[in-house]
Design a protein around this nucleic acid. Structure first.
Lengths: 185, 185
DNA sequence: TTTGACATGTGACTGAGTCACACATATGTT
DNA sequence: AACATATGTGTGACTCAGTCACATGTCAAA
């Protein structure tokens, strides 16, 4: 059993633990209950101006009908409204006032959970961790194809993608071109 | 927007990315399809000798009836059998030969995915990351109460809990006592 | 020996997603 | 201009995993 195996196993437990913990914090803060719903609200809040159902679908990694049903649910809950799209085919999705408030609560709960997770480290340790994580996540972006979008829960303001501080965005820009990354945001 | 907020956001994206990626690898390797099923097989393989349905329930964070249904599914799929329990009330759950093979495939897929995730780092960087992650996960164990078990997908051989190399187990031992940790395993 | 806790199990249901398909709109080809 | 094809949205029928409420059998302690 190599050192690498040990490190890999710990990484897996760590990712699961952080994701669990963040998810629980969001659920507790929520009008969300559901990870997909939470991701949709977060995406609508941070990333996409007035995305179409199809754009949302791609961010979340759902089927078209699944995305339609998701928007149905959000609309029934009064969190979202459908409007005209860029196209005769597509429709735009926008947060209501209530939806925006719910999304902001979710996002704040996520951030708070993650900040408290990092609180055991000193500032210097956090910087080191941050740099290493940036390297690893860059590698993941290089390999990744399909599925839900990595940054579906990210806080755009905290991420720093516009100032080049986000390693995920930088890796994506290197892979797909800076223009594509800006378009997605 | 502080440095801490930026780091926290990146950590969230990272945890999500690693968990997604690992989950996808397991799904691709699977007779599992479902994260809960995968976690159950992994737990049966690595941790619990012949656990009762209730012990499994606690590891996975399900309701009693949910656990019964899970075991029903696994048994229907020929991956598990029910046997007598320690008690007249409880029943034990054990992997079949087929179930053990499926669980080993899952576990191998997880390990391979995580090793390849770490491959972008040098050995020295990996050690640094490992140490920092160990600190953070220790903090999570301190705070955590309820829900699914952190190590539900861990590989016991790789984890090193018996030799004191697993920071999760060490933190749990400090919190609950060494005896309790050994009992869970 | 009765009372209460506990483990398992069942019926009825919910919620989130899928597939197969329909329809309207857009795009490109001849 | 006409037609074929691709795209975005939506619907009906269904699946699957999980819940709740409740029943049953077993254990422990008063």
């Amino acid at each position: 059993m190599s050192e690498l195996d040990h490190q890999a196993n710990l990484l897996g437990a760590f990712a699961l633990a952080v994701a669990d913990r963040t998810g629980a914090a969001m659920a507790a803060a929520g009008t969300a209950g559901n990870p997909t719903t939470a991701a949709a609200l977060s995406a609508l809040l941070h990333f996409l101006d007035r995305p179409s159902i199809d754009q949302l679908r791609r961010v979340l990694g759902l089927t078209p009908s699944g995305a339609v049903r998701l928007v149905d649910r959000l609309a029934d809950a009064g969190l979202v409204t459908r409007g005209p799209g860029d196209d005769g085919r597509s429709r735009s999705v926008a947060l209501t006032v209530e939806g925006r408030a719910a999304a902001e609560r979710l996002s704040a709960a996520r951030a708070e959970s993650l900040r408290s997770t990092l609180a055991v480290l000193s500032p210097a340790e956090r910087s080191t961790l941050d740099a290493l994580i940036g390297r690893v996540i860059g590698g993941i972006v290089q390999e990744k194809e399909g599925g839900a979008w990595l940054c579906r829960l990210c806080d755009l303001a905290a991420c720093g993608r516009d100032t080049g501080a986000c390693p995920t965005a930088n890796a994506a820009a290197a892979k797909y071109g800076a223009e594509a990354v800006r378009r997605d945001a």
